[in-house]
């Protein structure tokens, strides 16, 4: 190799890391040495090839398990090896019996977000569940599109629980605005036309116990878990809504 232009220089030139005052010398060398010029060309081709192979990963949606929210939530639960579900359901039972207003595991941090969420979920339920002709924006007949679309808008893969064993069939869903960004509402209907909605939006990453809320006789169960906050809302007594909330929770946990 030429004493003035080293092999390191060739790589640094290719990688844009050469001192500016050396660039002219390297370019002159490459113009005079076809073998080195060809080597640099091949390295440049490798770099382009790497981008062609792997840049598409940058455009892939980040899997929900890799979001900061999901990882933070898992970390908060880590070390509490009691099965989460058992713990959560125990809290539900306590709530059902005592009508407790349960405190978040993390104290009251994050509670504001959950309370705001359930308020929005109740309002959305009241507005749309009573809608006869247009209760949903996308009907269940386009289920794949519905789930794909809302997953995309909420930025994470959504799971839509099947409540047919409990007597509620999915009829569709819609996109809703929330102060924190987009929210999704899925609507279910019983054979008797009773409607139940599952409302979800991005959470703050925390996990909370199940809670109740009530607005003018409409009941809601809600909880935050990893990337999402969930609320299940229906015009049902608490003791009838609770098993439905459990079914939803169980399916979302799978």
């Amino acid at each position: 190799m030429n004493g003035r232009v080293s092999e390191d220089d060739l790589h640094a030139y290719l990688d844009g890391q050469l001192e500016p005052e050396r660039v002219a010398a390297v370019e002159a060398w490459l113009a005079s040495d076809p073998i080195d010029a060809e080597r640099v060309r091949q390295w440049a081709e490798q770099k382009d090839g790497l981008h062609r192979l792997f840049d598409r990963v940058l455009d892939e949606p980040v899997p929900p398990r890799l979001t900061i929210a999901a990882i933070t939530a898992r970390r908060r639960w880590a070390g509490r090896s009691l099965p989460r579900l058992a713990a959560a359901l125990a809290l539900v039972m306590l709530g059902a019996v005592g009508g407790w207003w349960l405190r978040d595991e993390q104290g009251l941090a994050g509670t504001g977000g959950a309370v705001a969420m359930v308020g929005d979920a109740l309002s959305a339920h009241v507005v749309f569940a009573s809608e006869v002709r247009h209760p949903v924006e996308v009907a269940v007949s386009e289920r794949a599109h519905l789930v794909g679309w809302l997953s995309k808008r909420l930025g994470a893969e959504l799971k839509v629980p099947d409540l047919s064993p409990s007597g509620y069939a999915l009829i569709g869903g819609r996109l809703l605005p929330a102060s924190t960004g987009p929210a999704a509402q899925f609507m279910y209907e019983s054979k008797t036309g009773l409607r139940l909605t599952l409302y979800l939006r991005r959470g703050d990453g925390g996990a909370t116990a199940f809670r109740f809320a009530n607005q003018n006789g409409v009941e809601a169960f809600y909880w935050m878990d990893g990337p999402f906050g969930y609320a299940i809302v229906a015009d049902l007594p608490r003791d009838q809504l609770m098993p439905l909330a459990k079914a939803v929770y169980l399916q979302l946990e799978k």
């Binding site: 790497l50 192979l53 792997f54 940058l58 980040v62 979001t67 900061i68």
Partner: peptide, 11 residues
């Protein structure tokens, strides 16, 4: 930085 981490890990 997660997308970049994923790209690098994939490669």
């Amino acid at each position: 930085l997660i997308p970049a981490l994923r790209r690098y890990a994939r490669a």
